[in-house]
Design a protein around this nucleic acid. Structure first.
Length: 505
DNA sequence: ATAGGGTTAG
């Protein structure tokens, strides 16, 4: 191409590299890199920055860093591209360290940089502190009017459960656009303030801000957690109006909304109408059947898909299948699928599938088999596994294994009162009142705060602890009425109030 | 010419 009048100019290469980054076109991107080397464009700041962005977006963060290191000078774009790269590659810590390194140079971070480094704080252990520090920097530099920066701050606060900070920031922002609304709605939804999410969506519509597919997803999720079919259906009609049915994220959220709202048939309709079905949609559907107690149908669907070779099951698909077995109590089938996973599909089960299998054995009363599996599997049992195991111990009244499970959980989260309470429950059921008293002393000695909504009640000089929420506060008579049942150690649920109660004598 | 947020199954 050298000497030819059609030789691509630097500008074109730059734009093409940017497109390669956006569409993850690895093959073309590396050809351009090779061409850059041949044509002596390696030192071009624009092209090198675009190259850093390309490698970072294609998850080749090491290559991105290599290009960056080879650059003689760096500007805001190249720094930001690499920081973003670490952020999207889930190396938030590296992103933050790089940002600190940048602060030591002559190149000052701009709005783009802040938006990136703040996003890197999401999901990174202990990064909430960074978020507040960065927020201070943002205010000092006057970037708090930039909606991208604001929305990344809202995301970060919401991600760390600091919903009040997110809300404060949201209402302080004067020119809120769709991006900022999306972040706040999603923040509410993540923190289970689903009603607030819906209210904000209404406000957004009143302001004539157009929802995006992302907004639809988030609102549908909120409808799922609230199990509100009416609002969910309204959203569905909006989805149709906007022509967003083809978006897999939206379709999957719709399936989830209908199945959690108790209308599995409509979920099936959504799936039927989807032109391009993928693993995610099928898995959502299987999970939907699993959750509404139609385990057999979940398995039928799965088997049918396998026969038609419509789906190559992945780990999450097997989680759905095993969940179906779990909810329906199909122990043998569950074991069969679990084994098939390795033998037929060459997938080595990860901890989630082991968790399903362990739970399956335990719920069926085979506690020792479940316990052995926890020993044999190539993972260290996590909190979820121990706590589901503990609840099976509670159901079957196994004091020895229950104590072990509770000990493990207490070791993992010393301040969480739940395992103490369940353990006391198991002791009480077995009439081991000395042990019950021991647990109570432990809770007091360690000054563990009982969970919000739990209350001590003293009756006949014995202490009882109850799950009390706003509703049950007004129903204390019913609680007292339930006490008699509890005294006998048979904790039968006449209402969930009694179900969640234990005696601490 | 190059860089910025968020979404799917448990």
């Amino acid at each position: 191409m050298n000497g030819s009048s059609e030789k691509p100019i630097k500008y074109v290469l730059c734009t093409v590299l940017s497109s390669c980054a956006k569409t993850l076109n690895w093959h073309l991107g590396i050809q351009i890199h090779a061409y850059m080397i041949r044509s002596g464009y390696e030192d071009n700041l624009f092209l090198s920055s675009a190259l850093v962005d390309f490698y970072a977006k294609c998850f080749a963060i090491l290559d991105a860093r290599k290009v960056f290191s080879g650059m003689k000078i760096h500007d805001q774009v190249s720094w930001t591209s690499l920081i973003t790269g670490f952020s999207i590659n889930r190396q938030g810590r590296d992103a933050f360290l790089l940002f600190k390194e940048m602060l030591g140079t002559q190149v000052t971070p701009n709005c783009f940089t802040f938006a990136s480094v703040i996003s890197a704080c999401v999901g990174q252990n202990g990064a909430l502190e960074h978020c507040s520090t960065l927020h201070a920097h943002v205010i000092k530099r006057g970037y708090d009017t930039n909606n991208f920066v604001v929305s990344s701050l809202i995301d970060c606060y919401a991600n760390w459960g600091q919903i009040d900070d997110a809300v404060l920031l949201f209402y302080e922002t004067s020119e809120k656009d769709t991006v900022v609304y999306n972040s706040m709605i999603s923040g509410y939804s993540q923190n289970l303030y689903s009603e607030d999410a819906l209210k904000l969506f209404v406000e957004m519509r009143k302001k004539n801000l157009s929802p995006t597919d992302h907004t639809l997803c988030t609102i549908l999720n909120a409808c799922s957690s609230l199990a509100v079919l009416l609002q969910g259906r309204q959203m569905h009609s909006l989805v149709i109006k906007m022509g967003s049915e083809r978006n897999v994220f939206v379709a999957s959220a719709l399936i989830d909304m209908y199945s959690k709202g108790g209308n599995i048939d409509e979920a099936q309709c959504v799936l039927d109408q989807t032109s391009k079905k993928n693993n995610v949609l099928w898995t959502s559907m299987i999970m939907g059947y699993a959750h509404c107690g139609r385990g057999s149908e979940a398995l039928e669907l799965f088997d049918c898909l396998l026969t038609k070779q419509e789906v190559i099951p992945d780990h999450i698909c097997f989680t759905a299948v095993l969940t179906a077995c779990n909810h329906a109590g199909f122990l043998d089938k569950g074991v069969e699928y679990f084994n098939k996973m390795t033998t037929y599909y060459g997938l080595s089960p990860d901890i989630d599938q082991y968790a399903c299998l362990i739970d399956l054995y335990a719920r069926n009363g085979n506690l020792s088999k479940a316990r052995n599996l926890m020993e044999e599997m190539p993972y260290v049992p996590n909190y979820v596994i121990w706590s589901s195991f503990l609840s099976s111990c509670k159901i079957y009244g196994d004091v020895k294994l229950g104590r072990e499970a509770a000990d493990q959980l207490i070791k993992m989260e010393p301040c969480n009162a739940a395992p103490y309470l369940t353990l006391a429950h198991i002791y009480a059921k077995d009439g081991l009142w000395n042990e019950v008293a021991e647990v109570r002393r432990l809770i007091q000695r360690k000054r563990i705060r009982k969970p919000a909504g739990w209350s001590w009640v003293e009756v006949d000089k014995k202490f009882h602890i109850f799950a009390v929420d706003d509703v049950t506060h007004q129903r204390s008579n019913e609680i007292y009425a339930g006490l008699e049942k509890i005294y006998s150690g048979i904790i039968e649920a006449s209402s969930y109030v009694v179900e969640d109660s234990i005696i601490l004598a």
